[in-house]
Design a protein around this nucleic acid. Structure first.
Length: 119
RNA sequence: UGCGUAGGCUAGGUGACCGCGAGCAUAGUGCCGUAAGGCCGUGUUCGAGGAAAGUCCGGGCUCCACAGGGCAGGGUGCUGGCUAACGGCCAGUGGGGGCAACCCUAAGGACAGUGCCACAGAAAUGAAAACCGCCGCCUAUAGGCGGUAAGGAUGCAACGGUGAGGUAAGAGCUCACCAGCGGUCAGGUGACUGACCGGCUAGGUAAACCCCACCUGGAGCAAGACCUAGUAGGAGAAGGAUGACGCUGCCCGCCGACUUCUCGGGUAGGUCGCAGGAGAUGCUGGGUAACCAGUAUCCUAGAUAGAUGGUCACCCACGACAGAACCCGGCUUACAGGCCUACGCACAAA
């Protein structure tokens, strides 16, 4: 992944513990500000075994990554994010997941730029 | 044509745009990091499966002594072959099923020993045993004594089976055939098969203990090796060259200086292992086959929060089970549809 991502297990644990959760139908967004507000925003994806086998989990994570890639240019700097997929996300349409992630990010006040036409 | 049997192949395709991982080439002396080391642009090549799965076997590899001996434990179990090895595969043998193609089969030993065979039944292994029946005799109509394992009854199973002779009634008592046991001869590497002869014969269970033959040391890639930074280079107690700890469950043997507990501190990061191999495909030769040998060509995932996705168009049978994690050989399990080959049976035609 070219965009910033969380790698260490400790970083994940920190975001779960200290971060602010925003709960949606298909996913949960955890948000934790980084010490340096100008550093790159990093993201991690968690898809638990409740979602399904490895094929199903891979599918959900790839779709979430694709949506985040599309959303990334509008996200503010200086945050650590963790997106946890809920079992319902497996059955959801792509654009439903897309709208929900957008909604959660807006709710968390992460979106700094509105979508331009033709984007 | 229908029904069926065996084996094999495939696992939606094509195109466009955006996106991801790795290898190679190449720029700065660039960026991140204390450092080891890593990152960035462009081009190019490659990028999940037949089961990648379950983790059930076998091996490679690594460490534990140089991987040793014995016991215990575990595994395998018709024969021959293949293989690095196997509990796998191939070819056979015996037994069972199917009209057949074909399928199934843990299939060594019950005169080494022990156990078990419930209930029922007279009797469940002891060269025994008479409940009903059958036959003879006696008392006289109910029994007694004796003979009898052919019939009935019980049971998963009753001491060979069927037929004939024989007899008071019966019985391998006698005979024929069959089954079983022992022997001889013949064939086969062997499991075993065939022929003949013998005396006519005392169950089952070894996925019960057991016996026999063969195999088997332990832990596992979070194995293990190296590097960088850095805390501490502690305190107390116990054991130890009269051999600790460890190999290993025990004994022998080996090794040779630390080990265990409590308190305090630390518990970060990077590189390698990590993909050129019992490798794939084609051809030739040997073999019934599994497989082996030779030769030519090819290089085909390598992550470490974990790379294959999104959108669109067209086509069709509208797409199942499912995602590599050290690597191979198997087994087992899951699975939509499609295709190919060989064979059997029934029917029709010739």
């Amino acid at each position: 992944m070219k965009f910033g991502r969380l790698v260490k297990n400790k970083e994940f644990q920190l975001v779960y513990k200290k971060g602010q959760p925003y709960v949606g139908r298909h996913m949960v967004l955890y948000v934790l500000p980084r010490p340096n507000a100008n550093s790159e925003t990093r993201v991690g994806f968690t898809v638990g075994k409740k979602v399904g086998g490895s094929v199903q989990r891979n599918r959900v994570r790839r779709r979430l990554k694709e949506i985040y890639r599309w959303l990334k240019p509008r996200i503010a700097l200086g945050y650590d994010l963790v997106i946890v997929a809920r079992p319902r996300a497996l059955e959801a349409e792509f654009n439903v997941l897309q709208e929900e992630m957008m909604y959660l990010c807006k709710k968390a006040k992460l979106v700094v730029r509105e979508a331009r036409s033709g984007d």
